[in-house]
């Protein structure tokens, strides 16, 4: 079995931060590349539509 995380632990990881910006900010200050997602609840928080999107998007 291929060891999980192998490449990640030995390389220079690139992060996507979804949610609280401070998590990304500290990584960026430490010199890591971070893509921040401007997150909002999917489908305006409607669970029925969110479930449809899970299937379709």
């Amino acid at each position: 079995m291929k060891a999980v995380l192998g490449e990640l632990l030995q390389g220079r990881p690139v992060f996507v931060n979804i949610g609280v910006r401070a998590f990304g900010d500290t990584l960026r200050q430490a010199g890591f590349e971070v893509v921040q997602v401007d997150w909002a609840p999917p489908a305006g928080g409607d669970p029925r539509l969110a479930a449809l999107l899970d299937e379709l998007l």
Binding site: A43, L53, L57
Partner: peptide, 8 residues
């Protein structure tokens, strides 16, 4: 339309 609904 999926993205419209996703992002509202």
């Amino acid at each position: 339309i999926r993205k419209v609904v996703q992002a509202s």
